[in-house]
């Protein structure tokens, strides 16, 4: 009997282990202090939305997590490794498990859609064979409903299509953690909703954890398990959508009108 409860306890613990853990992270550019003592945990399987005004440092925050920007102080633990201290090789190994959707899509415009999707596979998984790569590329494109664009150039795509291709490229490595920088901005409400639902489904099927930056309250409602308010460089509050909506704090209310 005792042994059984112990097992339950330990599995429960492993579920609660944070996959991303930020401790008093600060970052400033010259005199512009963007993040101040930002502390935050993301647990396994959790989908957290970061809300904040334009220029409040949301993109800087998730770029710190993936190691594109070095914080001035603080620790950033991702899958048990402290990102600012890693060597390039170790960082690459972590990055293979973390997907990142860029705010500006960042599709390579010198390459076709197929080459765009192949790029992370060829780079992170050198051993993969051509048929395996082809299969994954087709699967990823089908997932976002754009299988027919495979041989198009990225310059021939519309804004919304680019976003979806970028999403496919992010998902192609089957990451454990996904960082989305404004996934629905610039899309019509219907496509935005579809993308949000897709994100929700993917999180369930592959059991991924994610941080989502978004201004789009429809998207937030669909995907968020909880919401982090990034105000004045700090994690000002973290709570569920309904709780924040009812908040009487002026700084929080602004976002829900």
């Amino acid at each position: 009997m005792i042994a059984k409860t112990e097992i339950v306890e330990s599995t429960k613990q492993s579920l609660d282990v944070p996959v991303i853990q930020l401790k008093s992270v600060s970052k400033s550019f010259g005199n512009n202090s963007v993040l101040r003592d930002f502390t935050f945990d993301l647990k396994k399987g959790e989908n957290v939305v970061v809300l904040g005004k334009s220029g409040s440092g949301k993109s800087v925050l998730i770029k710190c997590i993936i190691g594109l920007i070095k914080p001035d102080t603080g620790t950033i633990n991702v899958l048990g490794k402290n990102i600012p201290e890693l060597s390039n090789e170790e960082l690459d190994r972590i990055r293979a498990k973390v997907g990142f959707l860029f705010q500006s899509n960042a599709l390579y415009d010198s390459m076709s859609v197929r080459e765009n999707l192949e790029f992370p596979l060829r780079r992170h998984k050198a051993k993969m064979t051509k048929p395996q790569i082809d299969e994954l590329v087709v699967e990823a494109l089908t997932n976002v409903g754009l299988a027919h664009t495979i041989d198009m150039r990225t310059s021939e795509l519309s804004g919304g299509m680019k976003k979806r291709i970028a999403l496919a490229r992010t998902l192609i490595l089957k990451p454990e953690i996904i960082l989305y920088d404004e996934p629905t901005t610039g899309l019509d409400p219907i496509t935005g909703k579809e993308i949000s639902k897709l994100m929700r489904e993917l999180a369930k099927t592959y059991n991924t954890s994610s941080i989502i930056i978004s201004h789009d309250l429809n998207c937030v409602k669909i995907v968020a398990d909880s919401i982090v308010m990034l105000i004045e460089g700090k994690c000002y509050a973290q709570a569920k959508y309904e709780e924040l909506e009812r908040s009487t704090d002026k700084k929080i209310q602004e976002f829900f009108i």
Partner: peptide, 21 residues
């Protein structure tokens, strides 16, 4: 121009994230 536009549209960052220096 090529590297400049890759820089401002975050393509250089995307390469880095994709395990490429």
């Amino acid at each position: 121009a090529e590297l400049g536009s890759m820089k401002v549209t975050e393509q250089i960052d995307a390469m880095e994230v994709s395990g490429t220096n």
